[in-house]
Design a protein around this nucleic acid. Structure first.
Lengths: 277, 277
DNA sequence: CGAATAGTTGAAATGGGTCAACCGGTGTGG
DNA sequence: CCACACCGGTTGACCCATTTCAACTATTCG
């Protein structure tokens, strides 16, 4: 969590207005909200430019007024809160295709920090543009509402972990969740994924000491559930998915992989005006 | 958490279409989103009827398809998740003026349970009506979005409690939060509030045993921070607000008492069509 | 080469859980 | 009207999961 500031970098594809979006968000919208390419293009049209920030950079700071809404093209970020004594609690990890600062649409300032875990590339949307689009295209409004509802569902499951799961279960649950999310993005293999998190980040996420996270992960290795390699590129391999999920008490319902129900989609489309851009 | 079912009761004021809404929601909307009486009346117009349920009744069950969106007129409810082994984690307490099942606008089924802590009166909104209204009146859409964003902010603070606060701090924090919320509704005195929660509910909220909640509350009494009376009507008196808040590590920012920023309000109103009901 | 970062391991301390008993009020049925 | 059961709160003794403190290793970076 270091110096603020981003390389406004409009990288290799950084034209203003209609910046390049990585396909993750489009796939997510298509799968869950039935958003077609034509509709998604309207979102793409108001994208401002792409920025690239280095690992460790602060992207948003608690108490500060919101800037633009951001959509991650590549890389991992963390959203967290810091207590006055310096102890930290991570709310969630932000992966490609996830929005950051969506609540800028209705709130003046942030009550959380976000910083880049790995190098991150993201595009910006002006709040006013986003509001305008949501009004013109109710189905996109629904899709964005869906994103926040799903995020809240994941936050609730996280709460269950902290309140009612053992240390072993918490770590296992986090690993399964990350793997599932990455797999749905096409960013994980069948048996594991590239793991950029330190044990300290994991601890700050699941409410444990990094030391105890270490012990739990070594226990899981001893139990034949996972195997982790740090060098050269941190990788986490899941040796037995079903046993790991059982150990975590994992139930996938909260990920809402079933998408938006038809009747809702219909209600939102009824007055959609696809013509009027 | 007992039998499902509500008395469709359209109580003493239960006409269909424009049921009576208690002023809590209107005040909340006015204070935070700048929603005027005329705009709020459009919400009132699509309210279906009022229902009354007894304490302990299940209002929503995890895995079930959503019914209508509900707005609490009176009473307390809990939203929680139950693990397969029966352990329970409470997400939040629902007070007068709060919506329930707002995510029915974009999700098919619930991943949480809600049940009535006290007797509860609430009004229903058909999902389709709510979607229609949000499209016609962007500023009401914003207000509802604001409700969910604020709920998420409170959930995040709750996560901080479970992950990074001691038992004593957690209980203190919950008490302060409840008192503040009730006070902003005009439902608490300067020095305390009527407390319908059992120590078991408090424990399920803050991730502790009811036994340990008891110890913490007695310690807080011994420390001169609070004083609780069970009979006849459970009441919690706060003896020293600032010391209690200090003990809790309470920072009010996450309650977002400052409301929606003007520029957002302006953006949402720009295309508002107040005429077209 | 030396410093900083991440992981690993052990021993001791502790916060909160578990088990068990008891109390007081309230409601119910005989 | 009383006896009894039940629920919620209260307290104590003991136990164990996780933290804390401390040391050591391997690796990367300047």
């Amino acid at each position: 969590m270091q110096k603020m500031g981003e390389t406004p970098g409009r990288g290799r594809n950084g034209r203003v207005g209609g910046a390049v979006l990585t396909p993750h968000a489009a796939r997510k919208f298509a799968a869950f909200a039935g958003i077609g390419a034509a509709e998604f293009d309207q979102l793409r049209a108001i994208a401002q430019f792409e920025s690239a920030v280095a690992a460790g950079t602060d992207i948003m700071r608690a108490g500060q007024p919101f800037g633009p809404i951001l959509l991650v093209n590549e890389g991992w970020a963390v959203r967290y809160r810091t207590r006055s004594d310096g102890r930290r609690q991570i709310a969630n990890f932000i992966l490609p295709g996830d929005f950051m600062c969506l609540d800028a649409t209705v709130m003046g300032h942030s009550d959380y920090d976000i910083s880049a875990v790995t190098a991150v590339r993201h595009v910006s949307f002006r709040v006013e543009d986003m509001i305008g689009l949501m009004e013109r295209q109710p189905i996109l409004c629904a899709a964005i509402f869906w994103c926040t509802a799903r995020e809240e569902a994941m936050l609730l499951e996280h709460l269950v972990s902290l309140g009612r799961r053992s240390a072993y279960e918490r770590v296992a649950h986090l690993l399964v969740e990350l793997w599932r999310r990455l797999k749905s993005l096409g960013l994980a293999d069948e048996d594991g994924f590239a793991m950029p998190l330190t044990q300290e980040l994991i601890g700050d996420c699941v409410g444990l000491t990094s030391i105890h996270v270490n012990r739990m992960m070594r226990a899981m290795q001893a139990d034949g559930l996972i195997s982790c390699a740090h060098r050269p590129s941190h990788h986490c391999r899941i040796l037995d998915v079903s046993r790991l999920e059982a150990a975590a008490g994992f139930e996938e319902g909260y990920l809402h992989l079933d998408g938006m129900p038809g009747r809702v989609r219909a209600a939102f489309r009824r007055s959609g005006r696809t013509d009027k851009l």
